[in-house]
Nucleic acid binder design. Sequence first.
DNA 1: GTAACACCATACGCCACCGTATTGACAAGC
DNA 2: GCTTGTCAATACGGTGGCGTATGGTGTTAC
Lengths: 197, 197
Amino acid sequence: MPPLQSADVRADRTRLSSADWEAGALDLLAEQGVAAVAVEPLARRLGVTKGSFYWHFPSREALLKAALERWEKLDEETVFEPLEEIVDPAERLRELFVRTSKEMRSHVLYSELLKALDHPVVQPVMARVSQRRIHFLMQAYRSLNFSRKDAMNRARLAYSAYVGFLQLMLQLKLTRMSAEEFDAYVGHVVETLIPAA
Amino acid sequence: MPPLQSADVRADRTRLSSADWEAGALDLLAEQGVAAVAVEPLARRLGVTKGSFYWHFPSREALLKAALERWEKLDEETVFEPLEEIVDPAERLRELFVRTSKEMRSHVLYSELLKALDHPVVQPVMARVSQRRIHFLMQAYRSLNFSRKDAMNRARLAYSAYVGFLQLMLQLKLTRMSAEEFDAYVGHVVETLIPAA
DNA sequence: GTAACACCATACGCCACCGTATTGACAAGC
DNA sequence: GCTTGTCAATACGGTGGCGTATGGTGTTAC
Protein backbone atom coordinates (compact mmCIF):
# COMPACT_ATOMS: atom_id res chain seq x y z
CA MET A 1 0.00 0.00 0.00
CA PRO A 2 1.46 3.40 -0.98
CA PRO A 3 1.99 5.81 1.91
CA LEU A 4 -1.17 7.85 1.24
CA GLN A 5 0.62 10.89 -0.07
CA SER A 6 -1.17 14.19 0.53
CA ALA A 7 -1.95 16.47 -2.41
CA ASP A 8 1.74 16.80 -3.06
CA VAL A 9 2.55 20.41 -3.70
CA ARG A 10 6.15 20.28 -4.82
CA ALA A 11 7.02 18.71 -8.13
CA ASP A 12 8.56 15.87 -6.16
CA ARG A 13 11.82 14.42 -7.45
CA THR A 14 13.55 17.47 -5.89
CA ARG A 15 14.42 17.82 -2.25
CA LEU A 16 13.49 20.74 -0.11
CA SER A 17 15.43 23.83 0.86
CA SER A 18 14.83 26.31 3.66
CA ALA A 19 13.23 28.60 1.13
CA ASP A 20 10.64 25.95 0.27
CA TRP A 21 9.65 25.69 3.90
CA GLU A 22 9.44 29.46 4.22
CA ALA A 23 7.28 29.73 1.13
CA GLY A 24 5.04 26.98 2.40
CA ALA A 25 4.77 28.71 5.74
CA LEU A 26 3.64 31.94 4.07
CA ASP A 27 1.05 30.03 2.05
CA LEU A 28 -0.38 28.44 5.14
CA LEU A 29 -0.23 31.75 6.94
CA ALA A 30 -2.25 33.47 4.25
CA GLU A 31 -4.79 30.70 4.16
CA GLN A 32 -5.31 29.88 7.80
CA GLY A 33 -3.40 32.27 9.98
CA VAL A 34 -0.34 32.12 12.16
CA ALA A 35 -1.57 29.31 14.37
CA ALA A 36 -1.81 27.07 11.33
CA VAL A 37 1.89 27.40 10.65
CA ALA A 38 2.78 24.22 12.50
CA VAL A 39 5.55 21.93 11.49
CA GLU A 40 3.74 18.64 11.26
CA PRO A 41 0.84 19.90 9.12
CA LEU A 42 3.26 21.83 6.93
CA ALA A 43 5.41 18.76 6.50
CA ARG A 44 2.35 16.73 5.49
CA ARG A 45 1.46 19.40 2.99
CA LEU A 46 4.93 19.37 1.51
CA GLY A 47 4.89 15.61 1.28
CA VAL A 48 7.63 14.93 3.81
CA THR A 49 7.82 14.34 7.54
CA LYS A 50 9.10 16.69 10.16
CA GLY A 51 12.37 14.79 10.23
CA SER A 52 13.24 17.01 7.30
CA PHE A 53 12.09 20.22 8.91
CA TYR A 54 14.40 20.04 11.86
CA TRP A 55 17.34 19.77 9.59
CA HIS A 56 16.61 23.18 8.10
CA PHE A 57 15.33 24.99 11.18
CA PRO A 58 15.98 24.64 14.88
CA SER A 59 12.37 25.33 15.84
CA ARG A 60 8.96 26.44 14.68
CA GLU A 61 9.75 29.95 15.90
CA ALA A 62 12.79 30.12 13.69
CA LEU A 63 10.73 29.19 10.64
CA LEU A 64 8.16 31.84 11.44
CA LYS A 65 10.82 34.45 11.87
CA ALA A 66 12.55 33.57 8.63
CA ALA A 67 9.28 33.51 6.71
CA LEU A 68 8.19 36.86 8.07
CA GLU A 69 11.48 38.52 7.30
CA ARG A 70 11.23 37.17 3.79
CA TRP A 71 7.77 38.71 3.53
CA GLU A 72 8.91 42.02 4.96
CA LYS A 73 11.63 42.34 2.38
CA LEU A 74 9.34 41.40 -0.47
CA ASP A 75 6.70 43.84 0.71
CA GLU A 76 9.10 46.73 0.60
CA GLU A 77 10.28 45.92 -2.86
CA THR A 78 6.95 45.33 -4.53
CA VAL A 79 4.72 47.91 -2.88
CA PHE A 80 6.68 50.94 -1.87
CA GLU A 81 9.71 51.28 -4.06
CA PRO A 82 7.55 51.62 -7.20
CA LEU A 83 5.58 54.41 -5.56
CA GLU A 84 8.59 56.44 -4.58
CA GLU A 85 8.97 57.43 -8.20
CA ILE A 86 5.72 59.36 -8.35
CA VAL A 87 6.68 62.92 -7.58
CA ASP A 88 3.32 64.61 -7.09
CA PRO A 89 2.31 63.73 -3.52
CA ALA A 90 -1.44 63.79 -4.10
CA GLU A 91 -1.01 61.57 -7.11
CA ARG A 92 1.27 59.29 -5.10
CA LEU A 93 -1.36 58.91 -2.42
CA ARG A 94 -4.11 58.27 -4.93
CA GLU A 95 -2.02 55.63 -6.60
CA LEU A 96 -1.27 53.99 -3.27
CA PHE A 97 -4.94 53.83 -2.43
CA VAL A 98 -5.92 52.50 -5.80
CA ARG A 99 -3.15 49.99 -6.38
CA THR A 100 -4.11 48.58 -3.05
CA SER A 101 -7.11 47.12 -4.84
CA LYS A 102 -4.87 44.59 -6.54
CA GLU A 103 -2.24 42.47 -4.85
CA MET A 104 -4.78 40.62 -2.75
CA ARG A 105 -2.24 38.21 -1.38
CA SER A 106 -0.30 40.96 0.29
CA HIS A 107 -3.44 42.19 2.01
CA VAL A 108 -4.50 38.76 3.08
CA LEU A 109 -1.14 38.17 4.67
CA TYR A 110 -1.11 41.52 6.40
CA SER A 111 -4.61 40.90 7.63
CA GLU A 112 -3.72 37.53 9.09
CA LEU A 113 -0.70 39.01 10.78
CA LEU A 114 -2.89 41.68 12.32
CA LYS A 115 -4.66 38.89 14.13
CA ALA A 116 -1.45 37.65 15.64
CA LEU A 117 0.02 40.85 16.99
CA ASP A 118 0.41 39.37 20.43
CA HIS A 119 2.89 36.85 19.06
CA PRO A 120 6.44 37.89 19.96
CA VAL A 121 7.81 37.03 16.53
CA VAL A 122 5.04 38.75 14.61
CA GLN A 123 4.87 41.94 16.61
CA PRO A 124 8.25 43.51 15.74
CA VAL A 125 7.90 42.74 12.04
CA MET A 126 4.47 44.29 11.91
CA ALA A 127 5.66 47.26 13.91
CA ARG A 128 8.43 47.95 11.40
CA VAL A 129 6.24 47.48 8.35
CA SER A 130 3.39 49.56 9.68
CA GLN A 131 5.68 52.28 10.93
CA ARG A 132 7.26 52.56 7.50
CA ARG A 133 3.93 52.76 5.78
CA ILE A 134 2.56 55.40 8.10
CA HIS A 135 5.72 57.39 7.70
CA PHE A 136 5.31 57.17 3.96
CA LEU A 137 1.82 58.58 4.27
CA MET A 138 2.93 61.30 6.62
CA GLN A 139 5.61 62.54 4.29
CA ALA A 140 3.14 62.74 1.46
CA TYR A 141 0.79 64.84 3.56
CA ARG A 142 3.68 67.02 4.61
CA SER A 143 4.35 67.68 0.95
CA LEU A 144 0.76 68.76 0.66
CA ASN A 145 1.42 71.52 3.19
CA PHE A 146 -0.15 69.80 6.15
CA SER A 147 1.30 70.92 9.46
CA ARG A 148 3.43 68.37 11.21
CA LYS A 149 0.65 67.39 13.57
CA ASP A 150 -2.04 67.38 10.93
CA ALA A 151 0.09 65.25 8.66
CA MET A 152 0.68 62.77 11.45
CA ASN A 153 -2.98 62.60 12.36
CA ARG A 154 -4.16 62.29 8.79
CA ALA A 155 -1.61 59.56 8.14
CA ARG A 156 -2.80 57.70 11.20
CA LEU A 157 -6.38 58.12 10.10
CA ALA A 158 -5.71 56.95 6.57
CA TYR A 159 -3.75 53.94 7.70
CA SER A 160 -6.33 53.09 10.32
CA ALA A 161 -8.95 53.18 7.60
CA TYR A 162 -6.86 50.77 5.55
CA VAL A 163 -6.31 48.38 8.40
CA GLY A 164 -9.92 48.47 9.50
CA PHE A 165 -11.23 47.98 6.01
CA LEU A 166 -9.03 44.95 5.62
CA GLN A 167 -10.45 43.35 8.73
CA LEU A 168 -14.03 44.18 7.87
CA MET A 169 -13.77 42.85 4.33
CA LEU A 170 -11.33 39.99 4.51
CA GLN A 171 -12.08 38.69 7.95
CA LEU A 172 -15.60 39.72 8.79
CA LYS A 173 -16.83 39.43 5.21
CA LEU A 174 -19.58 41.82 6.17
CA THR A 175 -20.29 42.81 2.62
CA ARG A 176 -18.76 41.20 -0.37
CA MET A 177 -18.85 44.25 -2.55
CA SER A 178 -19.04 44.22 -6.31
CA ALA A 179 -16.16 45.70 -8.28
CA GLU A 180 -18.16 48.87 -8.90
CA GLU A 181 -19.08 49.29 -5.28
CA PHE A 182 -15.48 48.81 -4.32
CA ASP A 183 -14.28 51.40 -6.79
CA ALA A 184 -16.91 53.81 -5.56
CA TYR A 185 -15.75 53.27 -2.01
CA VAL A 186 -12.12 53.88 -2.92
CA GLY A 187 -13.24 57.03 -4.74
CA HIS A 188 -15.04 58.21 -1.65
CA VAL A 189 -11.98 57.57 0.49
CA VAL A 190 -9.75 59.46 -1.89
CA GLU A 191 -12.10 62.43 -1.90
CA THR A 192 -12.38 62.42 1.85
CA LEU A 193 -8.79 61.86 2.85
CA ILE A 194 -6.83 63.57 0.09
CA PRO A 195 -7.35 67.31 -0.41
CA ALA A 196 -8.42 68.27 -3.90
CA ALA A 197 -5.74 69.55 -6.21
CA MET B 1 1.11 20.44 51.94
CA PRO B 2 -1.79 22.71 50.93
CA PRO B 3 -3.03 22.29 47.37
CA LEU B 4 -1.18 25.33 46.02
CA GLN B 5 -4.26 27.43 45.42
CA SER B 6 -3.94 29.99 42.60
CA ALA B 7 -4.60 33.65 43.27
CA ASP B 8 -8.20 32.88 44.06
CA VAL B 9 -10.36 35.45 42.35
CA ARG B 10 -13.78 34.78 43.75
CA ALA B 11 -14.54 35.71 47.34
CA ASP B 12 -14.49 32.00 48.07
CA ARG B 13 -17.11 30.65 50.45
CA THR B 14 -19.60 30.86 47.55
CA ARG B 15 -19.89 28.35 44.77
CA LEU B 16 -19.91 29.21 41.12
CA SER B 17 -22.76 29.79 38.72
CA SER B 18 -22.79 29.79 34.93
CA ALA B 19 -22.62 33.57 35.07
CA ASP B 20 -19.36 33.41 37.00
CA TRP B 21 -17.82 31.26 34.33
CA GLU B 22 -19.06 33.58 31.60
CA ALA B 23 -17.66 36.61 33.37
CA GLY B 24 -14.36 34.85 33.88
CA ALA B 25 -14.31 33.90 30.23
CA LEU B 26 -14.77 37.52 29.19
CA ASP B 27 -11.97 38.60 31.53
CA LEU B 28 -9.60 36.09 30.03
CA LEU B 29 -10.76 37.03 26.57
CA ALA B 30 -9.99 40.68 27.14
CA GLU B 31 -6.60 39.90 28.60
CA GLN B 32 -5.27 37.21 26.35
CA GLY B 33 -7.63 36.61 23.46
CA VAL B 34 -10.04 33.91 22.43
CA ALA B 35 -7.49 31.10 22.43
CA ALA B 36 -6.85 31.72 26.11
CA VAL B 37 -10.45 30.95 26.97
CA ALA B 38 -9.75 27.33 27.81
CA VAL B 39 -11.52 25.43 30.48
CA GLU B 40 -8.62 24.14 32.49
CA PRO B 41 -6.79 27.47 32.80
CA LEU B 42 -10.05 29.22 33.54
CA ALA B 43 -10.88 26.68 36.22
CA ARG B 44 -7.47 27.18 37.82
CA ARG B 45 -8.06 30.91 37.78
CA LEU B 46 -11.40 30.51 39.47
CA GLY B 47 -9.93 28.23 42.06
CA VAL B 48 -11.80 25.10 41.05
CA THR B 49 -11.22 22.19 38.71
CA LYS B 50 -12.87 21.48 35.42
CA GLY B 51 -15.09 18.97 37.14
CA SER B 52 -17.14 22.02 38.02
CA PHE B 53 -17.12 23.49 34.54
CA TYR B 54 -18.72 20.53 32.86
CA TRP B 55 -21.59 20.69 35.25
CA HIS B 56 -22.48 24.17 33.98
CA PHE B 57 -21.59 23.83 30.31
CA PRO B 58 -21.51 20.93 27.89
CA SER B 59 -18.35 22.18 26.15
CA ARG B 60 -15.87 24.99 25.72
CA GLU B 61 -17.77 26.17 22.66
CA ALA B 62 -20.93 26.53 24.68
CA LEU B 63 -19.15 28.71 27.22
CA LEU B 64 -17.74 30.92 24.50
CA LYS B 65 -21.12 31.30 22.88
CA ALA B 66 -22.83 32.18 26.15
CA ALA B 67 -20.12 34.65 27.09
CA LEU B 68 -20.24 36.39 23.73
CA GLU B 69 -23.98 36.68 23.75
CA ARG B 70 -23.76 38.18 27.19
CA TRP B 71 -21.24 40.71 25.85
CA GLU B 72 -23.34 41.50 22.81
CA LYS B 73 -26.33 42.34 24.95
CA LEU B 74 -24.32 44.47 27.32
CA ASP B 75 -22.68 46.31 24.46
CA GLU B 76 -25.98 47.35 23.02
CA GLU B 77 -27.26 48.60 26.33
CA THR B 78 -24.23 50.58 27.43
CA VAL B 79 -22.95 52.06 24.19
CA PHE B 80 -25.75 52.63 21.77
CA GLU B 81 -28.97 53.12 23.66
CA PRO B 82 -27.59 56.20 25.43
CA LEU B 83 -26.63 57.74 22.10
CA GLU B 84 -30.02 57.26 20.53
CA GLU B 85 -31.29 60.10 22.63
CA ILE B 86 -29.10 62.73 21.01
CA VAL B 87 -31.25 64.17 18.26
CA ASP B 88 -28.78 66.26 16.29
CA PRO B 89 -26.96 63.77 14.05
CA ALA B 90 -23.66 65.62 13.86
CA GLU B 91 -23.66 65.96 17.61
CA ARG B 92 -24.54 62.29 17.94
CA LEU B 93 -21.59 61.30 15.79
CA ARG B 94 -19.21 63.59 17.65
CA GLU B 95 -20.36 62.13 20.93
CA LEU B 96 -19.91 58.61 19.63
CA PHE B 97 -16.37 59.36 18.54
CA VAL B 98 -15.48 61.06 21.77
CA ARG B 99 -17.10 58.76 24.26
CA THR B 100 -15.18 56.02 22.58
CA SER B 101 -12.20 57.39 24.45
CA LYS B 102 -13.55 55.95 27.69
CA GLU B 103 -14.85 52.43 28.13
CA MET B 104 -11.52 50.86 27.38
CA ARG B 105 -12.70 47.42 28.29
CA SER B 106 -15.29 47.40 25.56
CA HIS B 107 -12.64 48.30 23.01
CA VAL B 108 -10.19 45.76 24.27
CA LEU B 109 -12.78 43.04 23.98
CA TYR B 110 -13.84 44.11 20.52
CA SER B 111 -10.23 44.26 19.47
CA GLU B 112 -9.52 40.76 20.71
CA LEU B 113 -12.59 39.46 18.94
CA LEU B 114 -11.40 41.06 15.73
CA LYS B 115 -8.43 38.74 15.90
CA ALA B 116 -10.66 35.68 16.08
CA LEU B 117 -13.02 36.35 13.21
CA ASP B 118 -12.30 32.99 11.71
CA HIS B 119 -13.77 31.27 14.73
CA PRO B 120 -17.27 30.00 13.94
CA VAL B 121 -18.68 31.14 17.26
CA VAL B 122 -17.13 34.59 17.15
CA GLN B 123 -17.92 35.44 13.56
CA PRO B 124 -21.72 35.72 13.71
CA VAL B 125 -21.65 37.76 16.91
CA MET B 126 -19.16 40.19 15.47
CA ALA B 127 -21.09 40.38 12.24
CA ARG B 128 -24.25 41.39 14.09
CA VAL B 129 -22.53 43.92 16.34
CA SER B 130 -20.54 45.53 13.55
CA GLN B 131 -23.48 45.60 11.20
CA ARG B 132 -25.55 47.40 13.83
CA ARG B 133 -22.84 49.95 14.47
CA ILE B 134 -22.26 50.69 10.82
CA HIS B 135 -25.97 51.03 10.31
CA PHE B 136 -26.06 53.48 13.19
CA LEU B 137 -23.38 55.56 11.51
CA MET B 138 -25.09 55.39 8.16
CA GLN B 139 -28.36 56.67 9.50
CA ALA B 140 -26.60 59.59 11.11
CA TYR B 141 -24.95 60.50 7.82
CA ARG B 142 -28.28 60.14 6.06
CA SER B 143 -29.69 62.70 8.47
CA LEU B 144 -26.86 64.98 7.44
CA ASN B 145 -28.17 64.88 3.87
CA PHE B 146 -25.64 62.42 2.52
CA SER B 147 -26.90 60.45 -0.45
CA ARG B 148 -27.60 56.83 0.21
CA LYS B 149 -24.32 55.74 -1.33
CA ASP B 150 -22.27 58.48 0.23
CA ALA B 151 -23.71 57.72 3.64
CA MET B 152 -22.87 54.07 3.26
CA ASN B 153 -19.35 54.78 2.13
CA ARG B 154 -18.71 57.33 4.81
CA ALA B 155 -20.06 55.00 7.45
CA ARG B 156 -17.80 52.24 6.19
CA LEU B 157 -14.87 54.62 6.20
CA ALA B 158 -15.56 55.88 9.69
CA TYR B 159 -16.02 52.43 11.11
CA SER B 160 -12.95 51.14 9.32
CA ALA B 161 -11.00 53.97 10.89
CA TYR B 162 -12.28 52.94 14.29
CA VAL B 163 -11.44 49.30 13.80
CA GLY B 164 -8.02 50.04 12.38
CA PHE B 165 -7.16 52.49 15.10
CA LEU B 166 -8.06 49.91 17.70
CA GLN B 167 -5.70 47.38 16.20
CA LEU B 168 -2.88 49.86 15.77
CA MET B 169 -3.14 51.19 19.29
CA LEU B 170 -4.20 48.25 21.39
CA GLN B 171 -2.52 45.44 19.54
CA LEU B 172 0.41 46.93 17.72
CA LYS B 173 1.09 49.54 20.40
CA LEU B 174 2.83 51.56 17.72
CA THR B 175 2.54 54.78 19.62
CA ARG B 176 1.32 55.06 23.12
CA MET B 177 -0.12 58.54 22.77
CA SER B 178 -0.48 61.02 25.55
CA ALA B 179 -3.96 62.17 26.50
CA GLU B 180 -3.47 65.43 24.60
CA GLU B 181 -2.25 63.71 21.48
CA PHE B 182 -5.18 61.38 21.63
CA ASP B 183 -7.66 64.23 21.97
CA ALA B 184 -6.00 66.01 19.09
CA TYR B 185 -6.31 62.91 16.96
CA VAL B 186 -9.98 62.51 17.80
CA GLY B 187 -10.45 66.17 16.95
CA HIS B 188 -8.79 65.64 13.60
CA VAL B 189 -11.00 62.64 12.88
CA VAL B 190 -14.13 64.57 13.78
CA GLU B 191 -13.14 67.44 11.50
CA THR B 192 -12.30 65.10 8.66
CA LEU B 193 -15.21 62.70 8.81
CA ILE B 194 -18.06 64.86 10.06
CA PRO B 195 -19.09 67.83 7.94
CA ALA B 196 -19.05 71.15 9.76
CA ALA B 197 -22.36 72.41 11.03
C1' DG C 1 -31.90 14.63 60.53
C1' DT C 2 -32.15 12.78 56.31
C1' DA C 3 -32.88 12.92 51.36
C1' DA C 4 -32.24 15.38 47.23
C1' DC C 5 -29.88 18.50 44.71
C1' DA C 6 -26.17 21.44 43.23
C1' DC C 7 -21.54 21.96 42.84
C1' DC C 8 -16.87 20.12 42.83
C1' DA C 9 -12.54 16.77 42.92
C1' DT C 10 -10.02 13.04 40.98
C1' DA C 11 -8.61 10.16 37.65
C1' DC C 12 -8.71 8.63 33.19
C1' DG C 13 -8.27 8.22 27.86
C1' DC C 14 -7.66 10.90 23.75
C1' DC C 15 -5.58 13.98 20.43
C1' DA C 16 -2.39 17.40 18.31
C1' DC C 17 1.56 19.39 18.37
C1' DC C 18 6.72 20.17 19.82
C1' DG C 19 11.32 18.68 19.83
C1' DT C 20 15.14 14.77 20.01
C1' DA C 21 17.63 10.73 18.58
C1' DT C 22 18.79 7.51 15.52
C1' DT C 23 19.16 5.48 11.28
C1' DG C 24 18.65 5.49 6.14
C1' DA C 25 19.13 7.05 1.21
C1' DC C 26 21.09 9.50 -2.31
C1' DA C 27 24.41 12.69 -4.60
C1' DA C 28 28.95 14.97 -5.26
C1' DG C 29 33.79 15.15 -4.85
C1' DC C 30 37.89 13.01 -4.68
C1' DG D 1 33.96 3.25 -5.72
C1' DC D 2 34.23 5.02 -1.21
C1' DT D 3 33.57 8.83 1.84
C1' DT D 4 31.29 12.82 3.16
C1' DG D 5 27.52 15.79 3.41
C1' DT D 6 22.64 16.67 2.77
C1' DC D 7 18.02 15.69 3.21
C1' DA D 8 14.51 12.52 5.00
C1' DA D 9 11.90 8.54 7.73
C1' DT D 10 10.83 6.49 12.03
C1' DA D 11 10.15 6.23 16.65
C1' DC D 12 10.09 8.20 21.03
C1' DG D 13 8.98 11.25 25.20
C1' DG D 14 6.79 15.45 26.72
C1' DT D 15 3.12 19.07 27.20
C1' DG D 16 -1.38 20.99 27.28
C1' DG D 17 -5.68 20.95 26.20
C1' DC D 18 -10.70 18.39 25.63
C1' DG D 19 -14.24 15.62 27.33
C1' DT D 20 -16.06 11.48 30.43
C1' DA D 21 -17.01 8.84 34.54
C1' DT D 22 -17.58 8.43 39.03
C1' DG D 23 -17.63 9.52 43.51
C1' DG D 24 -17.73 13.15 47.28
C1' DT D 25 -19.48 17.22 50.03
C1' DG D 26 -22.07 21.08 51.57
C1' DT D 27 -26.82 23.20 51.43
C1' DT D 28 -31.55 23.19 51.33
C1' DA D 29 -36.26 21.21 51.80
C1' DC D 30 -39.10 18.75 54.28
